[in-house]
């Protein structure tokens, strides 16, 4: 059974000029121990999907349709207090900026201990021992001495490790990580990715990894969902999506990544830019930029359909369609 199941999720932002649909018909599932990468350009809705799952949508955004199920139980319609318990105990969150998660007024140790005593049936003494263990596991040198330091006494990379320890210490079943390595330098980024990957494997934790960095996804994720203009354009095993993408947008996205191993005279580019939420084209949202667009793409919106070894929301893969 899937640990997390998102069904036809729709998120709307009511504004004075009408309602903007930020997420439309987003469906996917994550199995225990699986890492799902979510990629896309800024504004595609990848961070918002994560925020909707952990119940922290920025107002006035609201879930307008669909369901989010954790172990078969609906969590999208829970009252704030109940959701707060689930966040932390069952879902851990890691954000791009560690300072949004850490309280600057409390020591790192106190924050870890409080999280554990709130969510786990253990006392403060044991929680402190475990906290030291967690800090060691995430690779903070001299954890026993540093546990009573304040967040500002750590460097950026170390702070993100503390956040990871904080997200993991209550042993949640699911971790939602939103650009966890984007603010870090490459050498630190590599360390943090390795750490996340190892912990997910060891603890059997499912993870939703939101990032714009395909390299990070390729290294870490088992499956990947490519988002475009608030919808999933393609979802499938990471190797397939990176190497043999079936949606023209994923193909373009992968091709536009500058290669590290050779110099090309001209990078492949996707013309134009992603539409604003207020001006999403009719039919397939990608049709004005798509080199393969035909009549049907301009009138009818495609749902995800089997395409090669992935699923793509593209009429090129419809039964009996002209390729």
């Amino acid at each position: 059974m899937s640990l997390l199941e998102v069904k036809n999720l729709r998120v709307e932002f009511p504004t004075r000029r009408g309602t903007l649909v930020a997420l439309d018909d987003v469906s996917f599932a994550i199995a225990p121990g699986e890492v799902l990468g979510v990629v896309g350009e800024s504004g595609a809705g990848k961070s918002m999907t994560g925020a909707a799952i952990i119940g922290l949508l920025e107002p006035p955004g609201r879930i307008a349709g669909g369901q989010i199920l954790l172990e078969g139980r609906r969590i999208d319609n829970l009252p704030y207090e109940q959701m707060r318990r689930i966040r932390g105990r069952e879902i851990g969150a890691i954000f791009q900026d560690p300072l949004t998660t850490l309280n600057p007024l409390y020591t790192v140790g106190r924050q870890l201990v409080e999280t554990m005593t709130t969510h786990l049936p253990i006392g403060p003494g044991e929680a402190r021992e475990r906290a030291i263990g967690w800090l060691e596991q995430v690779g903070i040198p001299a954890a026993r001495e540093r546990i009573d330091s304040y967040p500002h006494e750590f460097s950026g990379g170390m702070r993100q490790r503390v956040v990871i320890a904080l997200a993991l210490c209550a042993e949640p079943k699911l971790i939602v990580a939103d650009e966890p390595t984007t603010a870090l330098d490459v050498s630190i980024q590599a360390q943090v990715i390795a750490l996340l990957k190892r912990l997910a494997r060891e603890k059997g934790t499912a993870m939703m990894l939101v990032t714009h960095d395909m390299g990070v996804i390729a290294e870490t994720a088992d499956r990947v969902a490519v988002m475009y203009a608030g919808r999933i354009a393609e979802i499938g095993p990471v190797r397939e999506v990176v190497k043999h993408a079936n949606h023209p947008y994923s193909q373009g996205l992968m091709a536009s990544i500058p290669p590290l191993d050779r110099r090309v005279e001209r990078l492949q580019q996707i013309e134009g830019a992603m539409p604003r939420l207020s001006a999403i084209p009719k039919g397939c949202a990608y049709n004005p930029r798509c080199p393969h667009a035909f009549d049907r793409c301009q009138t009818e919106r495609p749902d995800l359909m089997p395409a090669g070894r992935t699923e793509a929301a593209c009429w090129l893969h419809a039964e009996g369609s002209a390729r």
Binding site: V186, Q189, A190, D213, G215, V216, A218, V242, I257, L260
Partner: peptide, 9 residues
Amino acid sequence: MEAIPDLEM
């Protein structure tokens, strides 16, 4: 160079 995530998998 070693630290860059490997897209080639």
